[in-house]
Design a protein around this nucleic acid. Structure first.
Lengths: 231, 231
DNA sequence: AGTCTTGCATTGTGATCGCAATTGCAGGCC
DNA sequence: GGCCTGCAATTGCGATCACAATGCAAGACT
């Protein structure tokens, strides 16, 4: 009845140190989405993703489910294969409108809480943004720009709104990549980060709101033009 | 070669017909959250939930992960036990503000698309709302109220915004239950459903926006009062 | 030669098992 | 009697297996 049952070679890493595997997978895919490294429409499979990342399909399933819940990935109900949602004008319009409400609001809430440490951090991130921009390094620009915005938003201490904003960036990432593909990096040099910094330094909530709104608005306009041009 | 098909005791339902088990579990928990049947703060375990629903822990894990991604459930990082997020004033304030932007917007978008079938459906749902209200049936009221709002929102054909609104209701459900616990069902009789119906019938986008905004605003005020009273 | 069918590989889903870690509860010590 | 300690039970995570269903490609038939 009881069999010796060879203990298997199931190699397991010590769970003691924090980051769970499915969280690492989540972060990996998340970063890929934010920087737009994953092309929309291509259907990948769970097992192939797992093999690519060197883990078992299980944590990938968990991570993918999170991303699907955040609408950063989509599942074809027929195939059940997963892909990045396609870039439609309707989607972009909704994402634009949502971002244009949430993110300026977060900036406004952050302004009164902005301290010297935040300003310093933002300045260094903005330098990174500019450096990536002059180098034409798309991934670096995307990552740095994301960090700039969310360094501000995190200061707002509004976790519900913050997570909504995070979900929106996950969905907008693929669109941003199209912009680079079409207009090139030069088309993006004009951001409103300096204005935002000034407003935050002065604790000017409405100024921060306007600066971020303008920054987003211009970026979304470019995306819209790129999407319309690309059909 | 006859196949009696006794291959295993693992009873598996034919996957052909659609609803996957983890989706059913998701819907079950979702409904429980929307109607506020799950009290905040209590920590349940995956296995206990699975046993309660009569399924294996696996689909429960999937469903819970979705709900955690939508911030409808929270995981205590120490215990790793999951619970409904506690009702803080800060959370309610953020949820209120987000709802007050998204849901009136969806109503405004739905107005030009409202046809006779929708009006008829809404009228019947609103009767259900009133019936539940006079009976004091909390679950029925919550469910019907939810259906009334989302029957409108779905007409907007804005899936991104719609899913955001859905996520917000999931988070607000527990708060709504507090209102009933404190002020009783009588405190909620005054909704703006009639006004919304009139505006939709006339295709009046701004009227629908105002009606839904007023409806939400009054409800959220009651919740705020209840939460502040309840500490 | 073109179209349909058949067969195999691959996929997502769910169940079960194993492991590390935490929790709960005794029982013992001061 | 109260506090601490040690052991058993429980929990989440990940791996592996099983199975139904789909995708794809080669073969068969007209």
């Amino acid at each position: 009845m009881s069999e010796p049952k060879p203990p298997k070679s199931s190699q397991r890493r010590p769970l003691a140190d924090n980051p769970a595997v499915h969280d690492q997978v989540y972060e990996a895919i998340r970063q890929a989405l934010i920087t737009g490294r994953i092309a929309p429409g291509v259907g990948v499979s769970l097992r192939s993703l797992a093999a690519e990342l060197g883990v078992s399909p299980m944590p990938v399933r968990d991570a993918v489910r999170r991303l699907v819940a955040e609408r950063a990935l989509a599942i074809n109900p027929a195939n059940k294969r997963l892909s990045v949602p396609s870039l439609t004008a309707a989607r972009l319009e909704q994402l634009s409108q949502a971002r244009l409400w949430i993110e300026p609001e977060l900036a406004a809430r952050a302004a009164p809480r902005a301290d010297a440490a935040l300003i310093k951090l933002l300045q260094s991130i903005d330098e990174e943004v500019d450096a990536a921009l002059t180098l034409g390094d798309v991934d670096r620009y995307m990552t740095a720009n994301h960090r700039f915005h969310f360094a501000i938003y995190e200061q707002a201490e509004a976790d519900v709104l913050l997570s909504m904003a995070g979900g929106l960036w996950l969905q907008i990432g693929p669109f941003m990549r199209v912009v680079f593909g079409r207009v090139g990096a030069d088309g993006l040099v004009a951001d409103r980060h300096a204005e935002a910094l000034e407003a935050l330094k002065a604790g000017d909530a409405e100024g921060a709101r306007r600066a971020i709104a303008a920054d987003l608005s211009e970026g979304m306009d470019k995306m819209r033009a790129a999407v319309e041009a690309g059909g």
